[in-house]
Design a protein around this nucleic acid. Sequence first.
DNA 1: TCTTATGATTGAGC
DNA 2: GCTCAATCATAAGA
Length: 459
Amino acid sequence: MDEQARIMQALGGVSLAGHSVQGGMALPPPHGHDGSDGDGRKQDIGDILHQIMTITDQSLDEAQAKKHGLNCHRMKPALFSVLCEIKEKTGLSIRGAQEEDPPDPQLMRLDNMLLAEGVSGPEKGGGSAAAAAAAAAAGSPTDNSIEHSDYRAKLSQIRQIYHTELEKYEQACNEFTTHVMNLLREQSRTRPISPKEIERMVSIIHRKFSSIQMQLKQSTCEAVMILRSRFLDARRKRRNFSKQATEILNEYFYSHLSNPYPSEEAKEELAKKCSITVSQVSNWFGNKRIRYKKNIGKFQEEANLYAAKTAVTAAHAVAAAVQNSQTNSPTTPNSGFQMKDEEFQLDSAENKNTLLTNMFTGSSGSFNLPNSGDMFMSMQNLNGDSYQGAQVGANMQSQVDTLRHVISQTAGYNDALGGNSMYSPHGLNGNGGWQDATTPSSVISPTEGPGSVHSDTSN
DNA sequence: TCTTATGATTGAGC
DNA sequence: GCTCAATCATAAGA
């Protein structure tokens, strides 16, 4: 006797009529039932359930055979469907709520942060916004760039580790999901497992893995926070500006003492010259104004120093220019130089060199250093790299005229050079504010080259 | 180690 | 958004 048939008989006659079993063998119709009446069907189902319940009591071979027989039973799809439905209904009430969970706000925060820091998402060229912000606020640009690159390197490491781990998790998740799906599909032949349930199981697995991912994200965020805090702490680590930068700023400050409020352009120019940021220039002027105002006496010496420097620089520059103009042909065309103030004409009888020399020694009229600020910047340009060669041969008369204009503007401070002090503190009004804040302190420079710095008031 | 100098930050006022 | 004023924190010098 065939083994399968024997088993089927042993099972008490499972109704497998009309179904062929493996090997093409047709099984006999179920005894006592033709499947046409309702009682018969109930009996059928009862038999099948009974077989299912007792299947574990049998040997493996028997169970296998019975399983196969059940799989091929004509009632199997209907029974499977009913059991799935029952399972679905009992399970939904428990799982329904879980499935409609809103996105975890914590996870969203982590995702957003990782995205903002450039850890997740597309890699940002300059690292994070934090790095860029700190870069702008940090001290020396050189040091800062080192710190910045350090930050980027470390962030890049974190990013790499994060992505490697994430990839591992995703791979493990996919493998496990596939495995479970295969297992469930296999089991669905004997257990009431619907595709929907498989989907649900997959989503449960994904949830579990995403909770692991969240831990990874949490750790990554912590690492970024630590890195960031260290980096930003370094921002507070004050570094003094270079001596040259301080000199440039001081020169500007004391030469614009009547109105030490550099315009945006001037700030940018100063920032460029000092290799610092515009906000650092603003900070510096803010601090300087307040500290100067608080203790003018203390800054007197410094003011004198810079005033002297300004005068010497300007005198040398102008003297050189005058000499140059004298050696040039009088027919030298005015190339590029625009005289912007024609109000004053130099007395033709006056010796230009004498005028200039006297001007800075105080023997001829007055020289107000604070108000000569723009002149200083301009004169500096005569010696600076930015000075245009064509301007050397420019109309010297115009330059001297403009200088005279500068002198004329200082009429209110005639004693500036007369006393012991070269510099006389002024510009501050009785209320502690700078007077003439709106009075143009700058005389339009005769050599407004690319290197010149304008004051607020010149705008 | 203490003091001073100085760059940065913060909050209020405009 | 800029400036002032107060304050903090650190560098630099005595």
